[in-house]
């Protein structure tokens, strides 16, 4: 079960967990750059941790906590963005 986070002035952050899938792309001048791979259907959703506000508390969440359940993960431009 999630633990309530201690809240201070430092802004809590999360991020991807484990290795991030990247593809090697060969450029014309033979420089090799790594670009992030787009999500593909039928493949694993990248795991991550993130701070959350949930039912009156500040908690930490991890996507892999939800294995065994259906998950809808929604991103949006920002709080108070109307639609």
């Amino acid at each position: 079960m999630e633990e309530e986070e201690k809240i201070g002035c430092a802004r809590p952050t999360g991020g991807p967990v484990g290795e991030t899938a990247t593809e090697k792309t060969e450029e014309k001048d033979n420089l090799i750059t790594e670009v992030p791979k787009m999500i593909k259907v039928g493949q694993k959703a990248p795991d991550f941790t993130a701070p959350a506000y949930f039912k009156g508390k500040f908690v930490g969440k991890k996507l892999s906590e939800y294995l065994g359940k259906w998950v809808v993960l929604c991103f949006y431009p920002g709080d108070f963005t109307f639609v």
């Binding site: 999500i39 593909k40 259907v41 039928g42 493949q43 694993k44 959703a45 795991d47 996507l63 892999s64 939800y66 294995l67 065994g68 359940k69 259906w70 998950v71 809808v72 993960l73 929604c74 991103f75 949006y76 431009p77 920002g78």
Partner: peptide, 19 residues
């Protein structure tokens, strides 16, 4: 500097079924 309206459906095995 913001996230667009992305919506991902993830199944019980952690697999993305649609977005």
């Amino acid at each position: 500097g913001v996230e667009t309206r992305g919506r991902f459906i993830i199944d019980p095995d952690g697999v993305v079924q649609g977005f």
